[in-house]
C-alpha cells in the first residue's frame, strides 16, 4: 500500500494513486465531483471551474490538482454547490441555449448538470450574444451559440486525432472557438470520425443526420442524473 496517497473528501477516506488528480481519485472512489471541461481521455484544462473544491480550506480545481497525502478536500458543501450553480448559470446566460430545440437535449452534460444542481432558471440576465453557425462541412456542424469554451475539441483534435482543427481566438468575453481555416469548417481536415466531434459535452459540435437516432426520453441523462455511474461504484463497493 506504500504507493497510494491517503486523503479525505468530505470526511470519506480516499486512496489516490501517484500522478492522479483529486478528480481522478474521486472518480475511482465513486465520489462524483461535478465537471464540464474535464474528460478522462484528455489532459486537464481547468477552465469551467465547476469542479472547484476546497483543499485544506483553499479553493482549487479538482481536475488539475494532484492529490497529496493527508489533504482535506471539501466537495459537497452548501457553499461550493452555490458557486457551482452560479457557474452553470453563467454558462447558460453566456450563450444561447434553447434546450427544447436542441438535438443534444438529454445527452447534454450542461443541461444534465443544471438538473442535478437543481437549477430551474438562471438568476443572471441572458446575454443573447450574436454567434454563428457553420454548417459548411458535409458531415459536421458547429453551432457556436451553444459552445461553453471547454476546449475539449481543441485538446482532442490536437492530442487524440493528431490534427489541429480547433483553437480559441479573441480574449475575455469575445473569446470564440475557431478553426484552422479562413472561415469554413469544410476547409479544415476534420473528419466525422474524429474524437474532437464526439467529445463535445454540449450541442455545439454535432454529427449531421444523427440528431434523433435515439429518441428523447431514452437518452443518457433522461432517467438518472449525471454522475450516477460514478456514484454507483461506491454504492456497489458498500454492498460488497
Amino acid at each position: 500500500m506504500s504507493d497510494t496517497i491517503p486523503f479525505t473528501i468530505d470526511g470519506v477516506a480516499v486512496e489516490g494513486r501517484p500522478g492522479q488528480t483529486i478528480l481522478q481519485a474521486a472518480d475511482d472512489a465513486g465520489i462524483y465531483i461535478p465537471r464540464l471541461c474535464a474528460h478522462k481521455e484528455l489532459h486537464p484544462f481547468g477552465s469551467c471551474r465547476v469542479c472547484t473544491v476546497k483543499v485544506n480550506g483553499r479553493p482549487q480545481s479538482a481536475c488539475t490538482m494532484p492529490c497529496a497525502k493527508g489533504m482535506v478536500v471539501e466537495n459537497n458543501t452548501p457553499e461550493l454547490l452555490e458557486h457551482r450553480r452560479g457557474l452553470v448559470e453563467m454558462l447558460f446566460v453566456e450563450g444561447n441555449h434553447y434546450c427544447m430545440f436542441c438535438e443534444k437535449s438529454g445527452n447534454c452534460e450542461l443541461q444534465a448538470l443544471a438538473y442535478r444542481l437543481g437549477i430551474m432558471a438562471p438568476r443572471y440576465p441572458f446575454q443573447f450574444p450574436d454567434r454563428n453557425v457553420d454548417a459548411s462541412h458535409p458531415d459536421v456542424l458547429i453551432d457556436r451559440n451553444r459552445c461553453i469554451l471547454c476546449a475539449r475539441c481543441v485538446r482532442a483534435s490536437h492530442d487524440l486525432d493528431g490534427k489541429n482543427v480547433f483553437q480559441f481566438v479573441g480574449r475575455g468575453s469575445k473569446k470564440r472557438i475557431w478553426i484552422n481555416a479562413e472561415a469554413k469548417l469544410k476547409d479544415t481536415n476534420l473528419d466525422v470520425t474524429d474524437k474532437a466531434v464526439e467529445i463535445c459535452p454540449v450541442g455545439a459540435i454535432l454529427k449531421k443526420r444523427q440528431g434523433y437516432a435515439v429518441p428523447v426520453g431514452q437518452r443518457l441523462y433522461d432517467h438518472q442524473p449525471i454522475g450516477s455511474d460514478i456514484e454507483a461504484k461506491r454504492a456497489a463497493a458498500a454492498q460488497a
Binding site: C48, L91, F168, G172, S173
Partner: peptide
C-alpha cells in the same frame, strides 16, 4: 477587468460582465 480578462475560465469571463451590468 472585462476588457482584460483572458476569457479562459467561466467566472472571470462571464462573472465580471454580470457584475458590471
Amino acid at each position: 477587468f472585462v476588457e482584460e480578462s483572458c476569457g479562459y475560465c467561466t467566472p472571470c469571463r462571464v462573472g465580471n460582465v454580470l457584475l458590471l451590468q
